[in-house]
Structure formats: structure tokens, C-alpha cells
């Protein structure tokens, strides 16, 4: 019994899931209807659906970020890339004669996604070819990217009136929010491609020891290009959803701090920033923890602006619980307890 328990506790998703359950419980106490999902106007409706919908952009970026972090990298530029893709899409829609037509939106979305691929290749080039530390390589695009987005929007907030584009952010399909469906597709594809093929293992091997994996014949350079490009692609999708949700491109605020939320989701999910083993499922739990935390702050009635203090608390607690020092301390206490119990038996 205790062996099973120890196994469960030792599982790396244990603490994140416990955190999520605690947050759910707090919500349930504060708001008894928390788990009810009703159908209104043919759409699913309820707190859980809200969490999924609002958390979708963060989750999408976090999926890309997980793969980047697994290669011992990091991508700080995702927020800027999201802003650029939103700005590009909105400026194309605004510039076209028919902002409401499906073709215009299709062109705008594809151009935005294509540009994000270029940005991702740029990051990949800096990291894989020039060998710059990822945190700094992506810092360049993070700083310059917002400036580029401002150039595209010419410093204005671009408001578009285009139903098909708006649908991307706030539409429903079979009652499920489009954003959630997109997030599910991205998550599913990433899981399928990296876990049903050897790709995921290659990514992990590059993260654990780049030199050894190179000697074993893994093409690290191509892999790095791929993960950074994928991450930028994810960022662009998230940027489009965020922009479509408000139907406005704001170069300064679209995706502000989303890189931090995404990185947090990955870390809470148990993927180490030191690279190597990664868990997409963990990232999913992490993203849910972050979004549930934000919702909890609302439902409990704490001023929403204090959310950041709680985020800080959650990060600190999860990091400390996952720390090797804590694990050692725990096992030390357990051993001492066991010893004492053993001695007690011997004495009696």
C-alpha cells in the first residue's frame, strides 16, 4: 500500500495535479456551481469551459515551448511573435477591399503564419548555427519584435470588423469554443509526432547531451531549427486567437508576459529547464493550473490585479517541492522515521 503511495507521490505529475485539485476545491467552495456545464444557445457554457477557452493561447504556446525547453533551450520571443502575427493579420484584413470575406481572412492568417515560420527560422539560425545561448538569442527578437509589430501597426491599435476573423477567437464549433479545438489539435499533433515517432527521443537526447547525440548521429542542428520554428508557429496561432478575440491588434499588449506564463506552465508540468525529458501532459496540467489560478482569484473575490502575487506563490511552492534538496530532505526524514520505528520494535 505504502509502496504504491510512494510511487504516486514520486510521479512527477503528482504535485502539479495536487495543485490543480486544490485550486478546484477552493473554487467549488467559493462557487458551488463550478463544475456545472450547461448548454446555452447551443454552446457549452460554464466555468470549466471558460478556463479551457481562456487558457488555450497559453497552452498552445506552452506546447511549442515544451519542445524548445526539452532541447535545453528557451524561447522568450513568443509574445513578440504573437504580437507580430496579430498585427500582420489585422493590417492585411484592414487593407483589403472586403474585410468580411473568408478569402481575405484565409490570406491574412496564412501570411501571418508564414511570417512566424520565418521568425522561427531566424531564432533557430541564431541558436543552431551561430551557437548563441537560447535565452539571449530569443531576447533579441523579444526586444526588437515589439518594435517591428509597432511598425506594422504604425503605432495604432488596429480594430477590424471581420466576422470570419472574429470567429477564430470567439466562435463555437459543435458547441465547443474554436480556440479550445485549435489548442486540442496542436496538442494532439505535437504529442502524436513526437511520441509516436523517434522524434521526441531525439529532441530529449539533444537536450541531455548535445555532443553525445551528435556523435550518435542525431542531427541536432536540424532539430533545433524545427523546434524553434514550431514554437514560433504556435506563438503565431496563439497571437491570432488573442487578436481575433478582441478583434484588435495591439502591438504593445498582445501576448504581453505570455512567454512567462508559457514557461511557467512547462516548469510546473515538471519539464526541467535544464533540458532532456519532457512531458506534454505535464504542460497541459501546468497551463490548466495557471488559468485555474487566474479564475480562482476572480471567483474568490480577490482583486484580479493581485493575481501575480498568487502566481509567484504557486511557482515558488511548485519549484521548491520539485527541488532535489526537498526530495532529499523528505527521504532523510522518512529514513529517520523508519529507523526510529525499527529501534522501537527492537526495544520492545
Amino acid at each position: 500500500m505504502s509502496a504504491v503511495l510512494a510511487k504516486v507521490v514520486a510521479h512527477r505529475l503528482f504535485w502539479p495535479v495536487v495543485m490543480l485539485l486544490i485550486l478546484f476545491t477552493i473554487n467549488l467552495i467559493a462557487f458551488p456551481g463550478f463544475f456545472t456545464i450547461s448548454v446555452r444557445d447551443g454552446h457549452l457554457f460554464g466555468s470549466l469551459i471558460d478556463i479551457l477557452r481562456n487558457g488555450a493561447p497559453t497552452l498552445i504556446i506552452a506546447v511549442g515551448m515544451t519542445l524548445v525547453i526539452a532541447t535545453r533551450g528557451i524561447d522568450l520571443s513568443v509574445g513578440a511573435v504573437a504580437a507580430i502575427s496579430g498585427a500582420v493579420a489585422c493590417s492585411i484584413i484592414l487593407g483589403s477591399p472586403e474585410p468580411g470575406s473568408l478569402a481575405t481572412v484565409a490570406v491574412a492568417v496564412s501570411v501571418a503564419l508564414l511570417i512566424s515560420l520565418v521568425l522561427g527560422v531566424w531564432n533557430g539560425f541564431l541558436v543552431a548555427v551561430l551557437g548563441i545561448q537560447p535565452i539571449i538569442a530569443t531576447l533579441i527578437l523579444m526586444t526588437a519584435g515589439r518594435g517591428v509589430a509597432m511598425l506594422i501597426t504604425e503605432g495604432q491599435i488596429l480594430t477590424v470588423n471581420s466576422p470570419p476573423f472574429k470567429f477564430l477567437g470567439s466562435g463555437f464549433w459543435f458547441g465547443v469554443p474554436i480556440a479550445v479545438i485549435i489548442a486540442a489539435v496542436v496538442f494532439g499533433l505535437a504529442a502524436l509526432i513526437t511520441r509516436r515517432t523517434a522524434l521526441g527521443m531525439f529532441i530529449e537526447s539533444v537536450g541531455i547531451n548535445p555532443e553525445a547525440s551528435r556523435q550518435a548521429g542525431v542531427r541536432a542542428r536540424g532539430l533545433l531549427f524545427a523546434v524553434y520554428t514550431f514554437c514560433a508557429f504556435c506563438a503565431a496561432i496563439a497571437g491570432l486567437i488573442l487578436t481575433a478575440n478582441t478583434a484588435a491588434a495591439d502591438a504593445n499588449n498582445t501576448g504581453l508576459f505570455i512567454e512567462l506564463d508559457a514557461i511557467l506552465a512547462v516548469v510546473i508540468g515538471g519539464t526541467s529547464l535544464a533540458g532532456g525529458r519532457y512531458s506534454l501532459l505535464g504542460t497541459l496540467v501546468g497551463a490548466l493550473v495557471i488559468q485555474t489560478l487566474v479564475t480562482t482569484v476572480y471567483t474568490v473575490g480577490i482583486p484580479p490585479i493581485a493575481t501575480m502575487v498568487f502566481k509567484a506563490a504557486v511557482v515558488t511552492v511548485v519549484c521548491l517541492l520539485q527541488s532535489p534538496t526537498t526530495a532529499e530532505a523528505f527521504s532523510g526524514v522518512r529514513r529517520r522515521l523508519a529507523l526510529r520505528a525499527g529501534k522501537g520494535v527492537a526495544a520492545s
Binding site: L260, M308, V315, C319
Partner: peptide
């Protein structure tokens, strides 16, 4: 990052 969130919050 945690310190940043804490301070900003």
C-alpha cells in the same frame, strides 16, 4: 521570475 511576479503583484 517568481520574484518579478511577486514584486509586480
Amino acid at each position: 521570475l517568481a520574484a518579478m511576479f511577486l514584486a509586480r503583484g
